[in-house]
């Protein structure tokens, strides 16, 4: 199944929830992060229940320095 994460194409297994995808991304920090699927913000408590679909566009954001 083909999805994009922050614009990058990614091939993932057919049955995958958001939480599993997040684990695969091996980020240094899991704090201060939020995630949206097709421009819908999905809260962390729903990541396990949320199954990914073909063509999903995932946006992953983090807090950054700014004024």
């Amino acid at each position: 199944m083909q999805i994009t994460v922050n614009g990058q194409p990614m091939n993932v297994p057919g049955e995958l929830c958001l939480n599993e995808l997040f684990e695969q991304l091996t980020l240094q920090s899991h704090h201060s992060i939020a995630l949206a699927v097709n421009s819908q913000v999905i809260s962390r408590s729903e990541w396990t229940a949320h199954q990914l679909q073909e063509g999903d566009r995932i946006i992953l954001i983090e807090a950054a320095a700014g004024g």
Binding site: V5, N6, Q28, S29, L60, I61, E62, A63, A65, G66
Partner: peptide, 22 residues
């Protein structure tokens, strides 16, 4: 204190400048 948001850079990784503050 104000903070901004940015997309996580999946190649370069997280810059971590806010980590001590957070």
């Amino acid at each position: 204190v104000t903070v901004a948001l940015k997309r996580v850079d999946l190649d370069a990784g997280q810059d971590g400048i806010l980590a001590p503050l957070l």
